[in-house]
Design a protein around this nucleic acid. Sequence first.
DNA 1: GCTCTAATTATGCAAGCGTATAAATACACA
DNA 2: TGTGTATTTATACGCTTGCATAATTAGAGC
Lengths: 220, 220
Amino acid sequence: MTESRSTTRKSFRREGEDKRREDLIAATLECVAERGLAGATVREIALRADVTAGLIRYYFPAKDDLIGAAYRAVMNRMTVQASDALKSAADDPRDRLNAFVKANLGQPIMDPNNLSLWAGFIGMVHADPAMALAHRDGYLGFRDELEALIREALLAAGKPAEPIHTRRHAIAVNAIIDGLWLEGCLAGDIFAEGELAETGIAAIEAVLAISLNPEKGGAI
Amino acid sequence: MTESRSTTRKSFRREGEDKRREDLIAATLECVAERGLAGATVREIALRADVTAGLIRYYFPAKDDLIGAAYRAVMNRMTVQASDALKSAADDPRDRLNAFVKANLGQPIMDPNNLSLWAGFIGMVHADPAMALAHRDGYLGFRDELEALIREALLAAGKPAEPIHTRRHAIAVNAIIDGLWLEGCLAGDIFAEGELAETGIAAIEAVLAISLNPEKGGAI
DNA sequence: GCTCTAATTATGCAAGCGTATAAATACACA
DNA sequence: TGTGTATTTATACGCTTGCATAATTAGAGC
């Protein structure tokens, strides 16, 4: 008896919802990192995740939902990586700020893939209110964390730490970190190992007028 | 006698090649600013420029050629705007650096449209060697200009200005400018008028350990 | 083992994309 | 005025895109 109408369907295993979402987000981030946002088509993502486009739609009703989730995931990942550096830092607040800065200006945070992801999303902030909101939340969260680290470092160095000054310092230090991160991601090959982290620490020490190495004493 | 096969073709005027290219680039930049890179389709650009897609192809054989030209145009525009600020600055090098920084951290350079344009292009650096090259050239050009301004300002303040130090300062000052520019473009509504320019000047004064107001004297 | 249903595959749709090409015409020149 | 051609419009092509939908089946529960 001849086999009629070959309708062989690929065998599959079911996965839990969380795992599926995570895998789809990971596949999305890979696609964006390699080919930019435009290259992250539903088909490419599906191929990368070894599923079909229909499954993507099942978990993320519109492509924008997946893109938004991917952005939040990459921002969250960088935040966690920087926070992890705090966990293994010495107890002195200056060491902690030092470790935080160095984490943000070293691998795996300062990485061209992260830059591609970040820029792809950031480029949509002007046109997409949801992206604008996500970015604003992230920015303020990061800056608040930074301001707290700065306040503690100033106090540990015996310097005044009024909110009006720590706010301004946080804005400036955030700029130094972001700006050097950009330089490192975009032109990392022309800098020596650790050069940008050192440059960042030196600039921040100058701005705060303290040393971020407690053994050296309080203020510069 | 009835009119047969209405083939009325829109009347047109010819333009010179340079004007055409400029107009197409301008239309492209408008589209990118409003809708991100993905929104700048050939049809949308043609509509914006009041021409047809065929004409775009006549002047730019591939869409990538137009996108690349648009990127170079926006970078060049920002560079010219910053340089213009130098022309009207006082002669003292500290005034000149001060004016350069303020120009980069104020309108029209620090503008959400510029951010959208920049991010859209930057997001492709990792995936597109031509974009990577264009960016590298722009970065080194900007940094060299900044380094020269810094060197002169240091000398005017009676401070040493060896290349190893001015290079490092240029990297840091570039970061401060870029970082604050990002903050201003992405969250400009939460900062007071001129606040980021002031923050930038203060941070750079701290990093260089000089004042950028010559009447205040040489060093801090 | 059987039933049910949520998860998954496979396929298709309509719209849009960059690019290709032919025809028309503005305009420079003789 | 007539001619030639570079520029421009109009249209079409083949492919890709996000989304839609029907059919199938893994696996939980009884």
